[in-house]
Design a protein around this nucleic acid. Structure first.
Lengths: 223, 223
DNA sequence: GCCGTTTCTGATTGGCAGTCAGATCTCTGT
DNA sequence: ACAGAGATCTGACTGCCAATCAGAAACGGC
């Protein structure tokens, strides 16, 4: 109801987004912040996260290190701000699961849609997802929580589907959903790697779809 | 034929294992090298890889930074030496796939063995595998190759089984094997994470076994 | 005990993270 | 248009750690 009119076209508007000194930045400040984030995102696409120096980002943005620290306590937090946007978009993954029918002949198509959703999402956000994994693995709780939430949302949705379609108990349904999501996430993250062996994406997509279909319905997939 | 008598009991004997100055280390040198590796391995278990300073390792080993660089060009290389040992042991995973029967009633048990093998292997080598993933993700080719080889070995074995059991074409078999291995690796790496939701290992093990069984045989698992 | 070789180390250089005091810019009110 | 308040930016600094080097100490054969 209280929709926020998007006057300026900026994506971050009403957030309580303070600078290091605790004050709320004005127009100029937000512009600088945004510029820093854009440069950071651009650089993430080309260089590995760990090689990324604050100095480089600020040089790229035509500003100084101190300015960066005005807006972010560290690089991780800055990346987190970028990643948040992506994770929100990750709701689409959940939608792939809930928006289709899992009964009768439609189920296979729905499964296929889920697989496609994962593959596409990972392809699209390759660089950022890699950083998410990396920071998560390094033990940064904020990234870990983010990653878990993103996958958990899909997993829960899938578990509900399994529970209702197969009438299985919820423990088994949850575990199966977790396994399937793990499979999808991991294969999607390494699609490029698979191609470098003899495995082509078409075959992979097929295999994944069959496994998801069977995992959910316990029925033989249509050939 | 020219078997090397293992006089000293050391695990690294005949390798062309040169120090920084290009000379082959003697008894004392090898001892120091080993001590460094042991300390490093111990510290990996407690602290995150990225927080690990060369200085700390050498302090722990009662020596100086320069000594460390005498034997390893950087920490990564040292960790690589430790990881190599683990990857060799990873051949056991392949054995889980090839050593059991996938025909008739035995297949389910074999699938279960594979799942167990993965879960146990990851549990056992938690810390090192995490570092392997981390360095691999960071773009270190040496770790990446190692990780790929480890998983590829199992994947190929599984693909062969699938191809022969299901008489499917090799493209599909490879893709299915890849998907299953991805699932196993990813779930094994996050077993702890699953428990923190409502998913218990028992259920997970079951779900994985069913999926592996079905993925390989395309037959309904025994209840 | 002497000497060549192997091994170790204290001291140093260099790069980047992160901080601070103060310079510069922007906007508002008159 | 201009002073003043506040917002924003920056050069210069500290400190930590990686990585190196010249030379000291330990070893082993004689």
């Amino acid at each position: 109801m209280t929709s926020i009119p998007d006057v300026g076209g900026a994506d971050v508007v009403a957030e309580d987004l303070r600078a290091a000194d605790g004050r709320i930045p004005g127009r100029r400040g937000r512009a600088t912040r945004t510029r820093l984030l854009e440069c950071l995102e651009g650089m993430l696409a080309t260089s590995s996260f760990r090689d990324l120096k604050v100095t480089d980002v600020t040089r790229e943005a035509g500003t100084s290190p101190a300015t960066f620290y005005q807006y972010f306590p560290d690089i991780e937090t800055a990346v987190l701000a970028i990643a948040e946007q992506m994770v929100d978009e990750g709701a689409r993954l959940r939608a792939c699961v809930t928006d289709g029918s899992w009964r009768g002949g439609d189920a296979y198509e729905t499964a296929s849609g889920v697989v496609d959703g994962f593959l596409r999402f990972w392809e699209q956000h390759q660089a950022l997802l890699r950083v998410l994994d990396l920071a998560s693995l390094e033990g940064d709780a904020r990234f870990h929580v983010m990653r878990v939430q993103m996958l958990n949302s899909v997993t829960v949705a899938l578990a509900e589907v399994i529970e209702s379609v197969r009438k299985s108990d919820s423990g088994e349904a949850g575990a199966t959903a977790g396994a399937l999501v793990a499979m999808l996430a991991h294969t999607s993250a390494h699609q490029a790697g698979f191609e470098s062996w003899d495995i082509h994406v078409k075959d992979l997509r097929n295999a994944l779809t069959n496994l998801v279909f069977w995992g959910v319905t316990n029925r033989k997939p249509p050939s």
